[in-house]
Design a protein around this nucleic acid. Structure first.
Length: 303
DNA sequence: CGTATTTGACCAGCGC
DNA sequence: GCGCTGGTCAAATACG
């Protein structure tokens, strides 16, 4: 966790008003880790009773890949998988919470953007492929979700093409590929060993087509009926993020990658209460209706 | 019958 | 080189 911006969000309770005046609420708790420079992002969300949070959470898949890695990565960590975690080159950010989730600590998700470049740095072309070209990988995003179901509905259609046992884990890892032709997005789904209630989903690549769910005319209505609308959830975030977007684009991308997409398609309003636990006994932050209510002030002030 | 899933085999990358 | 592991393929199977 060193060098990461870490935001612990506790006890967030939100509610939305839909165009049809139905109300929904979606209490959740979460721990978000933001890596400096948006080189990787990691999120853990506990969405209470919320299985289908589809589109907005997964709008990340349509977010342009960001980030060029810093000039050097002296602390690139070799993980059990070939993926590497981009640690910030300047670990001067202050962690406002060390009480991250156990799942994050015990079983960190390694996410790398520009993995190809990272591989070149970390592996030094130790073993060039016969084909004279390394297997190319798309930027990846991962997040952890507390869910009873492994394969969460995310608005896209996936075809399972493999399943493998994972070392040191009793839970297998499933491999999915987007069913849309010409769309090369893949995702891996596995359960956390340390907390079986947590599903770790890793996405690779970006969709070249709109979400099937978003394309469904009945989506909004269905969401309202089910009591949740992720689009409604997403939309207010856009408003709240807007003023922050210009100066904090990298962070915003992380934020978006965690699912706070801004492709909402409703006129929902967003009423909420929330607080940050910057430290035990920390004071509640005043709600300004802006991103600063969500992002600690020191992050907003950072360059 | 078409589509999705399962599952063993295969391959590549990496450490020793 | 060998073994381990992750990732993918593809035939077999299941399902609607």
């Amino acid at each position: 966790m060193e060098g990461k911006e870490e935001v612990k969000i506790d006890n967030i309770v939100g509610s939305s008003t839909f165009p049809d005046n139905t109300q929904s609420s979606y209490p959740f708790q979460g721990v978000f880790d933001f890596c400096e420079g948006d080189k990787s992002s990691l999120g853990f969300m506990e969405l209470l009773g919320m299985q289908d949070f589809s589109a907005s959470v997964f709008d990340m898949l349509q977010v342009p890949s960001v980030v060029q890695p810093a000039a050097s990565n002296p602390v690139a960590t070799k993980m059990e998988s070939p993926e590497v975690l981009n640690q910030p080159a300047t670990p001067n950010s202050s962690s406002i919470s060390s009480a991250s989730s156990d799942a994050l600590n015990d079983e960190p998700v390694k996410v790398a953007d520009n993995e190809e470049e990272e591989q070149q740095k970390t592996r030094k072309e130790l073993k060039p492929k016969k084909t004279n070209q390394k297997r190319q990988r798309e930027p990846r995003f991962a997040f952890m979700t507390k869910s009873e179901v492994d394969h969460l509905e995310d608005g896209y259609r996936w075809r399972k093409y493999g399943q493998k046992a994972v070392k040191n884990s009793p839970f297998p890892r499933s491999y999915y590929r987007c069913t849309s032709a010409s769309c090369n997005v893949k995702k891996r789904v596995e359960r956390s060993f340390s907390d079986p209630s947590i599903v770790v989903t890793t996405y690779e690549g970006q969709h070249t087509h709109p979400s099937a769910v978003m394309a469904r005319p009945s989506f909004t209505g269905a969401a309202s009926e089910s009591g949740f609308s992720t689009s409604a959830f997403a939309m207010p975030m856009q408003r709240r993020l807007s003023h922050f977007q210009q100066q904090q684009q990298p962070f915003l991308n992380s934020f978006t990658a965690l699912g706070f997409g801004y492709k909402g398609n409703t006129n929902a309003t967003f009423l909420h209460e929330r607080r940050f636990c910057t430290s035990p006994g920390s004071d509640l932050l005043e709600d300004h209706g802006l991103l600063q209510d969500i992002v600690p002030s020191h992050m907003l002030n950072e360059e």
